[in-house]
């Protein structure tokens, strides 16, 4: 195989791997916003997922239980935001920022309290460490497939099931949901819990699948990149998935280019995925429409 082909393959595989956490978080963003709650807390929910996955893998020795813990604690933060946003009608953006601060600080606090070491956790058992494809582990493959299934499932759920249509209605016109005899607040709460679970799963991928430890601030803004993916993908599951892969590509590109092009410094290239997200949300002038009641308390 020539060097060029192998480099392209590396870029392709890395794009798949780097996209996974953003895909899960972006799908979480879609369901939450479709129900009418802006989830600025995605970043914190990913952090909670990443950290708790490591704690429970360390505790039980099973990365599967770690993964479940990641989903659970992401969902717990989803519950907190969802409950505050629906029954307390708080400012969703401010509350989301609060969630992020709590999760990031909580993980740093937990590192010292549980592992007695600041900065990073000890290494734990990785999810599916064996190589399946040349550059992708078994665990990563499973998570990529599961991510696609989630996108497929969410798309089917939102557009093809009665509950999905009701959730859409919560984001467009919650009053109509009340008139139909349902409680939009409860539907919104369930959606934000699901959103947190998906973000927690994405976070768990970062810590126990892509690597095998938690380090401080390892989510590095991916929750916000996922929010950009939701907008870029026009609030649809497949659109958001595509946008997440697009941002994942730039993250992968940064790794592939590092050290290969001497005049491109690696520090500056770390900005690539963030620049891509910035251009993506700026390049959609006048062409996007969020769900009508998105971010508006009911």
């Amino acid at each position: 195989m020539s060097a060029g082909v192998s480099l392209m393959l590396t870029l392709l595989f890395l794009t798949l791997i780097k996209s996974v956490p953003i895909v899960y978080a972006a799908l979480g963003g879609v369901i939450s916003e479709r129900a009418g709650v802006v989830n600025i807390g995605l970043e914190g929910m990913m952090t909670a997922g990443a950290f708790s996955a490591v704690v429970f893998t360390n505790l039980t020795g099973s990365p599967i239980i770690g993964l479940i813990a990641g989903i659970f604690f992401g969902a717990v933060l989803g519950f907190v935001l969802g409950f505050a946003a629906t029954f307390f009608k708080v400012d969703q953006i401010v509350a989301g920022v609060g969630i992020n601060l709590v999760a990031l600080g909580g993980a740093a606090y937990g590192l010292v309290l549980i592992f007695n070491q600041p900065g990073a956790s000890p290494q734990v058992t990785q999810l599916g460490p064996g190589q399946l494809l040349p550059q992708i582990t078994t665990g990563e493959t499973a998570m990529i497939v599961l991510g696609l299934l989630c996108a497929f499932g969410l798309n089917w759920f939102i557009y093809r099931t009665p509950w999905g249509l009701r959730i859409q209605a919560c984001g467009e016109n919650p009053r109509a949901v009340t008139d139909a005899g349902l409680n939009p607040l409860r539907l919104r709460l369930y959606s934000v819990i699901a959103s947190g679970a998906l973000a927690g799963l994405g976070g768990a991928f970062l810590s126990i699948c892509e690597v095998n430890l938690y380090s401080d601030q390892m989510t590095a803004g991916r929750g916000f990149i996922a929010l950009a993916a939701v907008i870029f993908g026009r609030w649809t599951p497949w659109g958001a998935t595509g946008a997440a892969v697009f941002f994942g590509f730039f993250e992968a590109l940064q790794y592939v280019l590092q050290g290969r092009i001497s005049w491109l410094p690696s520090d500056a290239m770390q900005a690539l995925p963030y620049l891509a997200a910035l251009f993506a949300i700026a390049g959609l002038v006048g062409r996007v429409r969020a769900p009508a009641a998105d971010g508006v308390p009911y």
Binding site: D91, V97, L101, V102, A103, L104
Partner: peptide, 8 residues
């Protein structure tokens, strides 16, 4: 973070 959450 908790204070921000409450003040929301």
């Amino acid at each position: 973070g908790l204070i921000v959450l409450v003040l929301a």
